[in-house]
Design a protein around this nucleic acid. Structure first.
Lengths: 353, 353
DNA sequence: GCGATGTGCCAAAGCGTTTTTCCAACTGAT
DNA sequence: ATCAGTTGGAAAAACGCTTTGGCACATCGC
């Protein structure tokens, strides 16, 4: 500790009492007269006393820190800052944690899949979009760290605590929306089904196609949702024309890349091709045509997950242990088919980058 | 500590040595034979020993945590997740911190301007866009917490450590760019000059206008850069037509709002009005027309700031104590004036939201 | 063979809090 | 006046680790 740092000891000395009494006075714990209590508080404030967190944590056995682990995207960037979904979860979590007096440490899974928190020790962790039998989740649990996941851990026997969307229902929402707006055969553009989200979307897509007697067309973006990978996947999706007349992309960046590629190819959206994405973002709102998206409510996910984790950390039972956050389709121009014949002469605009 | 938790003591017992030796063996400190060292390491691993961070920090006097304080935007959201600038700084900082074994706790300044870190104690803090004589910065310094700022603290006597752009030069970059693309009288749309950034931009704008013998037109967005406030400011900017024929908006959200308002009014961008923003974002790339921006390199700012802070925390002298990060104008469609006569018949598109 | 120098390990003293236990001084009832 | 009960406060024991100082023993030079 830096020299001159004022601790509980210095306060005690200045107040002419014992450290015990100072501790009691400041924490409202023991039996101290209000008079002494206030005097001590005043002196502590005057001296600029700030309790040492480490010492407090040592005896308390807690650190006041929560961890949030987001999946890595590409190697360069810690997390694609543009993946608004993660950003919104993170923000919501930070917000809730702050309000409850916790600090939130955001990290990503290191390449070597070692413990993500380095030196720091967290009281609990939120794992975003865990993998199947996620080793990190298992490791944290084994270490006795309470874990909440956003999205479920596939193949997990335990009654884990999670928050998630009902991806089966919401996938149908999107596909039905596309069908209602004239799509006969929508393609699905998604990442490798390593998470419960991707898995359920694919499964539901297949089921929906079977029910509607259309052939499923699935495009997987290659791992590491970089901009290049997205562009490449977008090309493959548009190559499915004219068999497919729409695409549902499970990440707004994929949807935007598809939109971009359509523009490049002079494929009119929404006239000739419908595009829907997930989840909402500023870029989706500002693109032209603006992008229809499934809002996964990352804000609610982040908030609920953090609340559940804090309950867990404080020894309470989260209520409920599993929470499903509703989704909604935000219909925008990219699926809003106009009456035929009124198509704007927009070619000049569409061809410019 | 949970019962059964294996500590240094348990490892020592299992290895038949003293706790001291275990500590030395695991930290590579004292004099221990490689044979014993390895044996202890093996046993520690077998037992699943994980050092208690609080205890370690208590004696070490450090927590391994860095704080990052971003300005509050509106009350609801912890930080406008859409302000890509902050997100990118945060990401870069997280990344650097992680790599160096630190945890980064991101917070915002609480409304009551109390200490932002609640229970948790940080070894150092980065304050993003500090205010004039920022009380938070002063308070942190007074508490002996090393501080690095992104942007300078106006009215600060101390030789503080900061990273910043050269806003005087870069503002000229943008204004010259607008002039080169035909603007006679660009307006400036910015927030209240509470930060060094806003202050210098305004100052430079005034100087530039004087040099070019044009009347300056300044629009301030009201505090709390919400979407409503941005829209309202955008209306005021466009009301300046036809006197003004361009706008430089110092936040991409403001630029986008202006673009949106122009679209609503059927003002063609860039034909009738040029718009440039700062800083770059996915939304700026995807808008139509795509938005010319000044890239402030928030990534570099976040990275440099964190590196400097870590140096400070570890008792080294940051080199340099003040770092200026270069900017560049990314020219896109919103300022790219096409040859007259080839204006696309884009009205049908511009009127749709 | 004797001091000098290394070597491998350990005991003990903190680090700054909280918590438990205990004590002395009152208070009020008998 | 005595006893039980209460009250305000303090002493001391953790919490789990690092660090300092020192103790044996081995090695070496002369």
């Amino acid at each position: 500790m830096a020299r001159g740092r004022v601790g509980i000891r210095q306060v005690a000395e200045a107040a002419g009492v014992s450290p015990t009494t100072v501790s009691h006075a400041l924490n409202g714990k023991g039996r101290v007269t209000t008079e002494t209590r206030e005097r001590i508080q005043r002196i502590a404030a005057e001296l600029g006393y700030r309790p040492n967190a480490s010492a407090r944590n040592l005896v308390g056995g807690r650190t006041g820190l929560l961890g949030l682990v987001v999946p890595p995207t590409d190697e360069l960037l810690f997390l694609a800052s543009d993946v608004a979904y993660f950003v919104q979860i993170t923000n919501a979590a930070t917000n809730v944690a702050m309000k409850q007096g916790y600090g939130l440490v955001v990290t990503t899974v290191p390449e070597d899949r070692s413990s993500p928190f380095g030196q720091v020790e967290v009281d609990g962790a939120i794992v975003v979009d865990p993998l199947e039998r996620d080793p990190l989740v298992l490791e944290l649990r084994a270490a006795g760290v309470p874990v909440v996941t956003t999205g479920r851990v596939l193949g997990d026997e335990e009654d884990g605590v999670w928050v998630d969307n009902d991806h089966r229902a919401s996938t149908r929402l999107v596909l039905d929306h596309l069908a209602r707006h004239g799509s006969r055969c929508p393609a699905l553009l998604t990442n490798q089904p390593s998470t419960s989200f991707a898995f359920e979307v694919e499964e539901t897509y297949a089921a929906w196609c079977a029910e509607h007697a259309v052939e499923p067309h699935l495009v997987h973006v290659r791992a590491g949702i970089s901009e290049d990978a997205a562009a490449e996947a977008a090309r493959r999706v548009l190559d499915l024309r004219p068999t497919c007349d729409a695409a549902y992309a499970t990440l707004d960046r994929l949807a935007l890349a598809t939109l971009h590629e359509a523009t490049r190819r002079n494929v009119a959206v929404p006239e000739e091709f419908l595009i829907a994405g997930a989840t909402d973002s500023e870029a989706a709102r500002w693109s032209l045509p603006s992008l229809t998206v499934l809002n996964l409510q990352p804000d609610a996910l982040g908030r609920s997950a953090t609340e559940a984790l804090i309950a867990l950390v404080e020894g309470r039972e989260p209520d409920p242990r599993q929470r499903t956050v509703p989704c909604e389709v935000i219909a925008r121009a990219s699926t809003r088919r106009r009456p035929a014949g009124r198509r704007p002469a927009a070619t000049a605009i569409r061809v410019e980058s």
